[in-house]
Write a protein that binds this DNA or RNA. Sequence first.
RNA 1: GGAGCUGUGGCUGAGUGGUCGAAAGCGCCGGCUUGCUAAGCCGGUGAACCGUUUAUCGGUUCCCUGGGUUCGAAUCCCAGCGGCUCCGCCA
Length: 426
Amino acid sequence: MLDRKFIVDNADAVQQNCQNRGVTADVAKLVQLEQERREKLNDVQDLNRQANEKAKSIGKEKDPDKRQAIIEEGRRLRDAKDKVQQEHDTLEKQTAAIQNGIPNMSHPDVPIGEDDKSNLEIRRGATAIPEFSFPIKDHVEIGETLDLIDFESGARVAGSGFYFLKNEAVLLELALQQYAVQELVAEGFTPVVTPDLAATEILHGTGYIPRGPETQIYSIENSNLNLVATAEITLGGMLAGRTVDSADLPLKMCGISHCFRTEAGAAGRASRGLFRVHQFTKIEMFAFTLPDQSTQILEEFCDLECQIFDGLAIPYRVVDTATGDLGGPAYRKYDLEAWMPGRGDGGQWGEVTSTSNCTDYQARRLNARYKLKGTKGTHFLHTLNGTAIAISRALIAILENYQQEDGSVGVPKVLQPWVGKETIRV
RNA sequence: GGAGCUGUGGCUGAGUGGUCGAAAGCGCCGGCUUGCUAAGCCGGUGAACCGUUUAUCGGUUCCCUGGGUUCGAAUCCCAGCGGCUCCGCCA
């Protein structure tokens, strides 16, 4: 969430930003409610002060009658306080409700537009789009022919959107994990296997909203636990409510987790096969940084994603995500879209990774702070996240780009040590 | 899952219902000392928020979390969560 003072002081800019992002929020109302709330808060504090004074004077008063009088007065003050406190709390709730709906501000260079059509391509990867001299298959067909992916059994066991990986697909999954983690560890990331479940407060802190009608999140009944949609949730939660020494920053981690998504309302979209599934494995980059580090680290994350996909020799492009397509917490977001030859008519770009600078938006809700040695007070951290590899989508890109005329599929060179072969055949 | 113990400041650890934001030690910061010398001495040292000022000063809140009792709660009561130990179960 945004800082309330900031919203009040920059109401026009915040309102404009909401509009750019296609978010409805009554900023003016928030400003008004917040002003009233502060007046109530002052009243509460003043009544508390008076009541405290009375309470302290009681111990010193020896005369029973006078003592009783002070007790009565103290009780009256507390009652009065409770009443004003309630009024304050109501205002607080209303203010918070509006505040929660306001997205992060946007980087000035972010293209302004309603949806992903306004995303701006900023560069392409090192590998050219392949030209095939034979009729190509999509990954679903390839997966079936080579006995790599079993959607039918997945549907039987857990419903549509689930699948079994088999044979070399399993080796590819493990190889991709190894590859990505090795790359990131070499770059100084701390590898972390995170819980696949997280408490509701942690989800809220990172900007995910469980249990709504449109929720993307699976929740566990009779508990406050939820299946995570990404390790971003758990990694962000690691510092929730904590204050770290600025000397330890930036903190860079790569998390390995399963990701679970309901994909409510996503039916009918281009989602054949592995593209939009309810469960997949993901290697996620995450960083806690000082405010003046986050801009550079976003570029670093993007470069690493490019490095990983260049290493796999998969063609991709990088887009600067438009205002209307940014998630609530993101200040700026880059997506890598890999070329997927089997998608649409003659191939399409499909999102494979995404990296965001969330500035202090998540940290404020998580209450994750840093302290500068030798100074008073604390400040909110910046958080960034980025996909290193989302296995399911990487599999699509590999199977479709590496397919060969005889029906076999080549294994990317960097994965061969773990897969143990150069080609996957029937 | 069951039983017992436990949860205080960056850490260790005192704490009688009122004078406790909280002893002491460690750590940290500043200064002094340089014949107790990989030391000694003195002083300082939590956070958020509100108001005032913007060098400051005043106030509110915070002793796991949430309720409750009370004029007043770190201290009493209830619930929850975490930790430790033992038992059961299990990969």
